[in-house]
């Protein structure tokens, strides 16, 4: 039993090696860019990925897209694989601020240009495209303040605790709130980026704060939509302003339908386009004007 299992595993590994090897031995004249994304289960990241693919196709570049599944360790291994495959450039959508840094170091050591998209790492890459998460939070709070005329009770639903986007959006929100002394933060809690979890959280808040709630800021649209659903079910949505960040499809539809008050749109299309352009410039050794390209957010309302 044990032996046969071992043989099976060996065969499997050999087969995989052969499959990978045969892919590698294909034509290599075309420019190849390796892309490691934070998580392809996240709709916004998917939009960025789709934009990368679209612009790569336009530029006749071959793209290898892999999913780090939120694991920095996996991401570093993926970058190592890109290096041994000798890709022409790497686009990295970092899983973590510090833990993904070794990937940058390795690419630099191997002399392969590397571009960060959407989030940052401690180690500076050759170029960076993205948006400032703190800014998105500030825009959301400003939007709430405007709607509530600078005074009211709000709730914040945070992302997964300890991740860069959560930390930055939390920091941005806290700083922005300082400008509005009459806005009171009733409570803040994590919804773990998840629609169902944030819906449960909102239901519980409705029980404890009831009609005191006037505004909700959720760190991403999934959670914003969950909170919105809970408020709709409790028939309180018309009394509460809900805003969230990202601009995913469902959120844009909800904004059009008037159920979600606003979403802070991260421009996935632009992030993807700029990342490919920067990578190509680096490959062709063209001088780049700016190593940090900030794509601004847009507030989407009805």
């Amino acid at each position: 039993m044990k032996i046969s299992l071992r043989i099976l595993l060996t065969c499997l590994v050999l087969a995989l090696a052969w499959a990978c090897g045969s892919k590698e031995s294909g034509e290599k004249k075309k420019i190849v860019i390796g892309v490691s994304m934070l998580s392809l289960q996240n709709e916004f990241i998917q939009q960025v990925s789709a934009s990368l693919e679209k612009h790569a196709k336009e530029a006749d570049v071959e793209l290898i897209v892999v999913d780090a599944e939120r694991s920095a360790l996996k991401q570093v291994e993926q970058v190592e694989n890109f290096i041994s495959q000798q890709v022409d450039a790497i686009i990295l959508n970092p899983a973590e601020f510090e833990a993904s840094s070794p990937a940058i170091l390795r690419a630099k050591k191997a002399g392969i240009p590397i571009v960060n998209v959407n989030s940052s790492t401690k180690e500076k890459p050759d170029a960076w495209v993205g948006s400032d998460d703190a800014e998105s939070a500030k825009m959301a709070i400003d939007f709430l303040a405007k709607k509530l005329n600078g005074q009211g009770n709000i709730l914040i639903i945070q992302g997964y605790m300890g991740q860069a986007a959560q930390i930055d959006r939390e920091r941005g929100a806290v700083e922005a709130l300082k400008a509005y002394p009459n806005m009171k933060l009733l409570a803040t809690q994590t919804g773990e980026w998840d629609r169902a979890k944030s819906m449960s959280l909102m239901e519980n808040w409705i029980q404890s704060y009831g009609d005191q709630i006037q505004g909700v800021f959720a760190h991403n649209d999934e959670m914003g939509l969950g909170a919105m659903q809970a408020l709709l079910d409790a028939k309180k949505k018309d009394k509460v302003v809900v805003v969230s960040v990202d601009g995913i499809g469902d959120a844009l539809k909800a904004v059009d339908a008037g159920t979600l008050d606003a979403t802070i749109l991260q421009n996935a299309e632009q992030q993807g386009a700029q990342a490919i352009a920067l990578a190509l410039d680096l490959i062709h050794k063209k001088p780049i004007k700016e190593s940090q390209v900030l794509i601004p957010f847009q507030v989407k309302t009805k």
Partner: peptide, 12 residues
């Protein structure tokens, strides 16, 4: 769950 959150989420 899908009916509750009005979507079918692959990472639910």
């Amino acid at each position: 769950l899908s009916a509750r959150i009005n979507t079918g989420q692959p990472n639910a």
